[in-house]
Design a protein around this nucleic acid. Sequence first.
RNA 1: GGCCCCAUAGUCUAGUGGUUAGGACUCCGCUCUUUCAAGGCGGCAGCACGGGUUCGAGUCCCGUUGGGGCCA
Length: 471
Amino acid sequence: MPDTIRTRFAPSPTGYMHIGNLHTALFEWLYARRYEGQFVLRIEDTDEARHTPEAVGVIYEGLRWLGIDWDEGPDVGGPYGPYVQSERVELYRSYLGKLLEQGLAYECYCTPEELDQRREMMRAQGLPPRYDGRCRTLTATQKAEYCSAGQPPCIRFAAAETGTTVVHDLIQGEVPFENALMGDPVIGKTSGFPTYHFAVVVDDQLQEALGFPTPVYAHLPLILGEDKSKLSKRHGAVSVVDYAEKGFLPEAMFNFLALLGWSPGSTEEILSREEIISRFSLEACGSSPSVFDMAKAEWMNSEYMKTMPGEQLARRLLPLLQKEGLFEENPTEERLTWLAQVADLMKERAPLLTTFITWARYFFTDDYEYDEKARNKWLTKPATPATLHALAERLQVLTDWTSDTIEAEVRALAEDRGVGAGKVIHPCRSAVTGTTVGPSLFHLLELLPQETIIRRLHRAEVEFAEDRAAD
RNA sequence: GGCCCCAUAGUCUAGUGGUUAGGACUCCGCUCUUUCAAGGCGGCAGCACGGGUUCGAGUCCCGUUGGGGCCA
């Protein structure tokens, strides 16, 4: 075991960040933090065709969203830079050259068509389709011929043809590979770029050349979709921004992902970031893939929302509300305090920030729908318009707008009419919020301006009185 | 197709030879409340299969099946 743990996360900048990649990054980060080592970010963009600066930004954002920081990386630098592979091509080229010189690699002039054809033949014969190594033994004259024909070679590694290579993996155990089964892998493309595999190996092994111990691998199990196949785009939301946009709190996602493939060894489920770091270990990581269960992820998110102070929750809600046009761009301190009160009142219910906003819409606008249950069960009842009218008249004259005074009026009205309080409460809730569910009615009324409530009561009174007249 | 890894309820998992197999999500009841989408209480449901080893196997070994990964 090396004295200093160094873990590396090496994503390709593909323009979006998969939640499975984030899971991998999290575990590597946890391991580094647990043992006070370094977490290194390296961008693997040797696939020249597809890297853009924005795509690298997506990776940064995904990691930052979850609260993962890196000790070395393209933007922060570090002693073993550069940390973007495309900036290291000269380095890889020099290693390719070295291998060629030593006869450990050779130039291969086979065309993709020829290779395909031969693979097909081998398959037809029931043989494993692997490169037959024919270019290994090309003579100088043959090479010259190909060259003059203008055909650029790729470079292959002359792999051992017998024996077994054993890779030690901290999670998967000893993983032996039969050398005979593997063809000579391409390590340099015809374009002169190194292949992904070669670059990775050079980068990892370079640490050894620089006096670090041989890198040790730990292959984490993958995340699967609900149908148990590898999580991919067709499973719907898989990119990190999708979860952020859905309204997941990063701390909840952190907790949830940590528990996917790792267990603290107890029955605790809600664990803080610090607890997770201090209790993390590779031994406690499972080695079988696990399914991403959205229902449980939402449950965990709701747990975090419930325990979060309203003030803090309000800050998370604010940008989403503004985006929906439900909140002003430059709110006053007073308005933020009010939002915190709304958050406290509603946070028991919603599983996500977005559902919170949907469910709490009536706090921010008069523009909400009456849902089916509110209409059928209360609003269209014959007595309702009169009840709403009477309630509005009583509430209108209140000089002190608090849940207590409101409750007193509501109950007094019910008593006057000789009905249970529910006969006033339910129509009122339906009229003022458009729905039959929600928090304590008197507390929610208290948080809305008196005139807003009066207006909404009258509006519903008129609308449903007319409704019946039209029938 | 070859090689490797894995296998506890629908899902995430605890469990390292002797447990009534524990927890959580989901689902379903009941209950409280002015409502539930919240709270409280309860329930359904699991060691993939077949052989061994052992006094005794979820736990160890072999095979089968299934899933996943890597290679091509």
